[in-house]
Design a protein around this nucleic acid. Structure first.
Lengths: 131, 131
DNA sequence: TGTAACTATGTAATAATATAACAATTAAAT
DNA sequence: ATTTAATTGTTATATTATTACATAGTTACA
């Protein structure tokens, strides 16, 4: 899967920067609050950047949390095959990079033989720290 | 995994009924609109029922769509291990019941040996009809 | 049977998440 | 140069979900 975009626009850079600096997923309005000093004032400016960054695989959306996390996986080439580990106690989220898992899921076919070009998997449990 | 609740309350029945009658996932406010003739007037009445029904596995939430679908899988014993097939063209959603897949995922361990008590997997593609 | 504890309900208000619509500007392609 | 596309700025609004509090019904059991 090829890189889809060579550069990032000004707002995309600002938003990506703030997400990359966060160890944990960030919510859209928390991002908005954080970038207001940089001149981004309104939700659409943030959501547009988020949409693009998701599209090109620089960030991923954690659907069950409505939050966004920077991709640190395989040079972001797997935007269409994401897996996350979520601690239900401390809400720590990690991207899982297991080529075995991604191969298994990318090749999965349902009963009617339908194949998929994309998946998102979220695992929930209690992490070591919280145990 | 044992059944967690023997009966459903009045509002839970009403909400489950409407979801079961729908071939496709329903959004909370669409459910609300549909149950107003039965006396449920406000969002909390619907969201409470939804929360409970999700908890006991009678319905599942499609996280990427903020929508709810009735469980027709294995007598609802796998509320903690869900997988869905989503057509990105017609938005048709089906629950995937593959014991091979569920075994594989339920036994999955990450690099640090963390195991999970729950997962949700959403596959995306184009269904046969739309091809 | 009384009462305490719990579960469910009703209601109003508001919080949190996300998009529509439109005008203006900048960048890229021909 | 011109026009095409991408990006930005802005206001308003739509959609999704929760808080808070009052009331009513149910269950357990002393």
């Amino acid at each position: 899967m090829a890189q889809k975009q060579e550069y990032l626009s000004k707002n995309q850079k600002i938003v990506l920067d703030i997400i990359e600096k966060s160890a944990q997923p960030m919510k859209a309005y928390s991002i908005l609050f954080n970038v207001q000093k940089k001149g981004l004032k309104a939700p659409p400016q943030v959501y547009r950047a988020l949409d693009k960054l998701v599209e090109i695989g620089k960030i991923h959306k954690i659907e069950s949390r409505n939050a966004f996390i920077a991709c640190r996986n395989s040079a972001c080439t797997i935007a269409n095959a994401t897996a996350f580990s979520i601690c239900e106690s401390c809400e720590d989220v990690k991207e899982i990079s297991s080529s075995k898992l991604s191969k298994y899921l990318s090749n999965f076919q349902d009963k009617e033989g339908m194949k998929y070009n994309k998946y998102n998997l979220e695992f929930f449990g209690i992490c070591k720290k919280c145990k």
